[in-house]
Computed example of a mutant assay.
Amino acid sequence: MRLYEARITLKSPAIITGKRTESGFVKPLDHVPGSMLRGAIVTALYRQGAIKSFEEEARNPSILASPAYPLAGGERFLPATPFMWKCEEKGTIIDLTRQALEILEKREINISDQCGSPPRPIYGTLIGSKTLKEFDLRSFRATSVGIDKVRRAGVKGMLYDYEAIAEGTQFWAFVYGPESLDGQELEIFLGRGSSRGFGRATIRFAPFSASYQDVGPYIALSPVVPLKEITWNKCTLRVSRITGRTTELQAGWDYLKNTFRPTIQAAKRGSIVEANVEGECGALVYVGLPLRLEAYGDSILATGLNALIPLKTYYDLRGG
């Protein structure tokens, strides 16, 4: 098993939304959730014959993935931390992430003199790794009509809207998987509407040389479940403090049980996590330790959560 940086290119528009609204599937996400990306890769490998059983993959995952974030103009986009603000008048960004622990210790911060007006918090938004510009998602919106499968005709009153991420959009992500992925290019499908041609994409894997540390701070690449201890196999993450806002999160779709995973509480992406890593973890922290959730009288595996990168790696990805 090894860590890869995956590059994804949409070959057709993709309908990737957080939830369905009254008017349809609108308001696309600015990223591909880690659980969705993992499911797409697992499905592609199953069709190849490289994965023999969905049931075994659900019990003992051989593929894990972080969320996939945009890649544009040669730069990766990353979630901003709680210690980043934008000066609207100057068009600049204040980044005090490196001083976060010192600020938390002193419990004081003064940034008012760095902007001509009160700065705007950008915590959780996506910013360019080099330019620090905020990401502008390219998408389009259209209206479709529901089709009666028996009559093969439109159904009166069954209009719904969808908003799709534009073809050609690129993403990057970390993927933890077998050495056989090295250099592979797979065709995968992301989001809804694959039977109508939506969400077709290619993904290519290249080994990533990760730096490891046993003690935080870490930056959350994904939502982080605020537990004191998270263990997966022989790896344990012991969390002492998370600095960030906690929200409710729908933990994705369980493709094996054909049901939604439960809603959980999680700290937003970009949060600063002070933690110790113990045991045989290696690159696992980059894609997130899976979590067993008890729901509906059963145990459900939640992935795409708890992905952390060291503070140094966060700045390495941004070019220093």
Rank of each mutant, 00 (worst) to 15 (best):
R245Q: 11
A206T: 12
A251P: 09
R192W: 05
L190F: 09
A283P: 11
G183S: 09
Q250K: 15
S209P: 11
G191F: 06
I230C: 00
A166L: 10
F260Y: 13
F260V: 13
K228T: 15
S211W: 06
A267D: 11
R204P: 03
N233Q: 13
S240T: 14
R261K: 15
A220Q: 04
I219E: 03
K234F: 12
I300T: 01
L289K: 03
Y218P: 06
F189G: 10
K234P: 03
F198H: 08
S271K: 08
I188D: 05
E280C: 03
I203L: 04
F208G: 02
G193C: 09
R292I: 15
W253R: 10
L289H: 10
V287P: 11
T236C: 04
G279M: 06
L190M: 07
D254K: 03
A206M: 04
G168P: 10
V285G: 08
F208Q: 10
G193N: 05
G282S: 01
F171N: 04
Y296W: 12
T243M: 08
F198C: 07
E187L: 14
Y296L: 13
C281I: 03
A210H: 09
K257Q: 14
E179G: 11
L221M: 11
A266H: 00
G193T: 13
D214W: 07
L227I: 13
S211G: 12
L237E: 11
S195M: 04
A266K: 00
D214A: 14
G288M: 06
W232L: 02
L227G: 02
R269N: 12
L284R: 08
T236Q: 01
V239E: 03
F260T: 14
F174T: 07
Y176W: 13
I272K: 07
I219H: 04
G168A: 03
V273T: 03
